[in-house]
Amino acid sequence: MFESRISRPLAITVSCLSVLVALLVWQILATQGLLGQNFPGSFKTLKELAWWLSDPFFYNGPNDLGIGTNLLISLRRVLIGYCLAVLVAVPLGLFVGISQIAQSSVNPFVQLLKPVSPLAWLPIGLFVFRDSEITGIFVIFISSIWPTLINTAFGVTSINQDFLKVSRSLGASQFRTVVKVVLPAVMPNILAGMRISMGTAWLVIVAAEMLLGSGIGYFIWNEWNNLSLPNIFVAIIVIGFAGLVLDQIFGLLQRRFDYQD
């Protein structure tokens, strides 16, 4: 709006420079002691990162796992809870979008529970399941369900009525119309919802794992107890990259299903 578009190589160069400057400023602030004593600089943090990445998948007992091993533990929980949530949210969202009755019966729960931090469910999960692994999955399930559900339902209500008219006029059954017309028509909305859900799940897992005792979130908690700030920064960088990759996968999927004309 304000500037003319810049070329892609220039954009990448500027981004890299900006990161380099930030690392440099960080290093200077840390070595000057402006961030408190013993605050790690970016050089030390990057050195730690290189060390962790040189052998990411070791296992020396429950409190000494490689960062990759921890990441896989977290990813596994997220994927299981998230997939379960999508399996529930998409059909339920379609149903809520199609039927006023379903909408009226589901709406109070959505409105009431959506604003609650999923972590509030952690004690309930622990009490019911008496298992930290299942509780983690449960918390992810709860946190992933709302965005996908709401986006799917909204997609159905805003579907182009002409598509439904065409399908009805051909004598298609309700079921055929839902599978062949409604589902593909709301695919962009479903994917947008799934992308937000994935973002939320990845935010929540770190916090949940601090209380659950394994995974990348617990790694951070553990390193805090060891007062090892560089390792916490390493974890932050790794979590950020994993989140970025997950988000980009959805970016690709959304581009594949973006058929607006």
């Binding site: 002409d162 008219k165 065409v166 009805r168 006029s169 004598g171 017309v181 028509a185 058929y259 607006q260």
Partner: peptide
Amino acid sequence: RGPGPDRGIIFQNYALMPWL
């Protein structure tokens, strides 16, 4: 009593499904 395949309809804005 309802739509049926004995009547074909052409809409003003085509109503083609963009994913097909």
